Computed example of a mutant assay.
Amino acid sequence: MGDPPGRETRPARSARRSSWYGLGKTTTVEKDGVGRFIDDLVYAFADVSLTGLPVLWHVATTATNRYAGVKTAALVAWTTMVVGAAAIRGGWVTPLGTSVPGWVSVTPLLVVFRVFYFGVALAVAAYGGGALAVEFALPLESVAFAATVAALAVGAFPRFAEEYYRVASAYVDAWKARPR
C-alpha cells in the first residue's frame, strides 16, 4: 500500500532509515529507537528551520534582547516545532485530525505551503509570547504560550497539508488539462 497523497508514512511504520557513507554512497539500515529519533530530529530541524527561516531571520534582526521576549518565545516555539515534527515523523505521536501516521512529504506544492504555514505559526508564537512577556509582564506564561501554539501548529500541520495538497493538486491538474 502506498502513502496517501502528500504524506510520508514509511518512517513512522519502520525502523529503517537511510544512511550516508560519503562519496555519494547511501544505504538503508535498521536503527534503534534513539537512532531513529536522532535521524528524525535532524530531518525535522531542516524541514522546520529552512521553511521558517524568513520569520526566524526577521525575529533575530528586529526584536530587542530581553530576558523573556520575542526572541525567547521564538526559540521556544522553534524548538517545540522541531521536536514535535520529529515525534510525528517517527510515529511516536499521531498528528491531530487524522489517523494517518507520519510526516508530510516534500513536494513543490507542499514546500510553498510549509513556508507560509511555519512562518505564520512561528510569528504568532513569537510575537504573541513576546507581547505577554513585555506588555503584561508574564514571562513564564509567554514561554507556555509559545510552546502551546507551536505544539498545536505542528500537530495539526499534517492534516492541513493533506487538505491543501488535495485542493492544490486538483487546481494544478485542471490547469494542465485546460484547452490550449
Rank of each mutant, 00 (worst) to 15 (best):
A46W: 15
G33K: 12
F160I: 11
G2V: 12
G155K: 10
W175S: 12
W20D: 15
P108G: 02
G24R: 11
V106G: 02
L110I: 03
V59S: 05
F145G: 03
M81N: 03
W103V: 13
K25P: 02
A85S: 11
T62L: 10
W175P: 00
M81L: 11
A121H: 07
V83N: 03
A63S: 00
Y127R: 12
R16Y: 11
S99Q: 12
S99D: 15
A74Y: 08
G130I: 10
M81D: 06
E30N: 12
W20Y: 15
F118M: 02
V93N: 01
R114I: 00
Y127K: 06
K25D: 13
A137P: 06
L56Q: 04
F136W: 14
L50I: 13
G6I: 00
P5L: 03
A177D: 14
S18L: 08
E141Y: 08
Y21I: 00
T61N: 07
T80K: 11
F145A: 04
G128T: 10
R166I: 00
P5E: 09
A146C: 05
F136S: 07
R166Y: 03
P179M: 00
V70M: 00
G155F: 03
A147H: 11
G35W: 09
G24K: 10
A125N: 09
F113N: 02
L122H: 10
V104N: 01
L140V: 12
F45T: 15
V70E: 04
L109H: 00
Y67W: 14
V172K: 13
W92G: 04
W20M: 02
K31V: 10
V48E: 07
V76F: 02
L75S: 13
E8Y: 06
A121V: 09
Y21M: 05
A170K: 07
I88M: 02
F145M: 02
K71D: 06
L140W: 13
M1Q: 08
V172M: 05
A73V: 02
G35A: 06
Y164I: 00
Y67S: 06
Y127F: 14
G2T: 13
F160T: 11
A15K: 09
R17C: 05
W175D: 13
A168S: 10
V59M: 04
F45P: 02
A46Y: 14
A73W: 02
A177K: 13
D173G: 00
K176S: 04
R17K: 08
V59C: 06
K176G: 01
G2F: 15
D32L: 05
P101M: 05
T80V: 15
A85R: 15
A77C: 05
V111E: 15
A170V: 07
L53M: 14
V134M: 07
L96M: 10
